[in-house]
Write a protein that binds this DNA or RNA. Sequence first.
DNA 1: GTTCCGCATGAATCGATAG
DNA 2: ACTATCGATTCATGCGGAA
Lengths: 292, 292
Amino acid sequence: MEIKTDIYLGDSKEQLKKLPSNSVNLIVTSPPYADQRKDTYGGIIPDNYVDWFLPISKQLLRVLNPTGTFILNIKEKVVDGERSTYVMELILEMRKQGWLWTEEFIWHKKNSYPGKWPNRFRDSWERLLQFNKDRKFNMYQEEVMVPMGDWAKTRLKNLSDTDKIRDNSKVGSGFGKNISNWLDRDKAYPTNVLHLATECNNKNHSAAFPEELPEWFIKLFTKEGDTVLDPFMGSGTTLVVASRMKRNSIGIDIVPEYCEMVNKQLKPVELYLLEPKVKYEKIKPERRIAVR
Amino acid sequence: MEIKTDIYLGDSKEQLKKLPSNSVNLIVTSPPYADQRKDTYGGIIPDNYVDWFLPISKQLLRVLNPTGTFILNIKEKVVDGERSTYVMELILEMRKQGWLWTEEFIWHKKNSYPGKWPNRFRDSWERLLQFNKDRKFNMYQEEVMVPMGDWAKTRLKNLSDTDKIRDNSKVGSGFGKNISNWLDRDKAYPTNVLHLATECNNKNHSAAFPEELPEWFIKLFTKEGDTVLDPFMGSGTTLVVASRMKRNSIGIDIVPEYCEMVNKQLKPVELYLLEPKVKYEKIKPERRIAVR
DNA sequence: GTTCCGCATGAATCGATAG
DNA sequence: ACTATCGATTCATGCGGAA
């Protein structure tokens, strides 16, 4: 299976129009927060944030497959001592566009940057808003199960007594099946709170987006060969992870340097992926930079 | 110092009118969520929730001292596969009333309700919205600093096996590393994410409100002799904690049984508190139940 | 008196079944 | 079709009775 990676240079609102409808299985992105990262993105002042984002989310709604999911990583900043409301307004407006606001995951940043203010504590969490086009969407829960270790043993110990009694009293009842279910269960489903450390391994890009974040959602909402889109690619973490996980990926960014950087970074990944399978086959990266 | 505890029986919207303006230093409450607790509170359907709450928040704005804080514990439920939006709408409307939305703390619940669903995970967090009247408010940050060593221990002890394993698997070996970091320092400021379990210690009332929760905010936003208000008293956790911490407290509830129960429960607390200090002094509880 | 074990039950959610 | 009710499902916790 050959994995494609497309990178578009330009404004998301425009570049997204080039993508066919219903062609994306997962959108994971962390847009520039309002009035932050001014140096790289020019900064969108909070009052205009919703207006700025809505045309983009409209395009995203079009390109997303009905079984797909949109994960939006965002957190409101403090303005004049108060939390901004643009995230809430954005959710309300996106629902008017037709998006379903399915869930809100919390990303608990374990090692966020220390700091002290007179009237607030360190902000150590961010929102991960899940939007869908349809109430029926693909979700592969087993893929993100975590090992449970001792928990299962304890559980088994507790069960064993009752279990023996039941086994002795009834042979061939349904209980045996249940027990085997317990035995199989060495993994647990996660909750809607994610514990991840912030790792900013890329000094050139200011967004601290740990690889585990897109990885977790890619595992949860896509399978191999699906297509992942990040309309605010930045340093390309989402694309790198997607490629490694054998998903097609599409990235858009308005900064030429990022596009070039991600392009370079992805080449070795693809070579590594292709090598074992198509050893003597000619490698066609199928990658392009469309300069508007 | 004598601590007063007032309990009002009746509808908050009406009872609050009896309180003088600017007389409360902290409001901590957990109102009935929309469409829940039908058996005791009648249940408010989500569409009407904002309209139902706004007259109450208007009174709260009046009785709160300008240096005081309002902590609102709330979480939206799922309706037809989607998260309800009434909490966001409530925040927007309260701002129109004059409230400042200063911060949103996250309460991460270790033991939330079990269950497995095809398209969502267990919901293990709730919102703790902080509102203020003024940008300058009292905050005693040092009071909630945690000794590093103890904190690590407590945290470890409180974490269930499952949590530890989940944490470990997510962060890799980072957990142990973090602990050694904590041990290096004496005390640390907390973040805006709280880790607490729900306690169901009270048989008569399903208070999923652990004592640590009001305790933490009472420490953070009040000093001894201040006044704490809970307009949805329920089993009275907030009042009990406030009394123990030598804060005056006011509770309102529409259910007579709760008022009586809290009344009985508070008596021994006050006796215990007064005994060492005013051994031979006459004890005046200064408590009343204002019916209607 | 202890410790230990069984048991009921939560700020839940979905899907099937009944009316 | 639309609503109401019911059963089933990742556990953690505290309580009461048993050993």
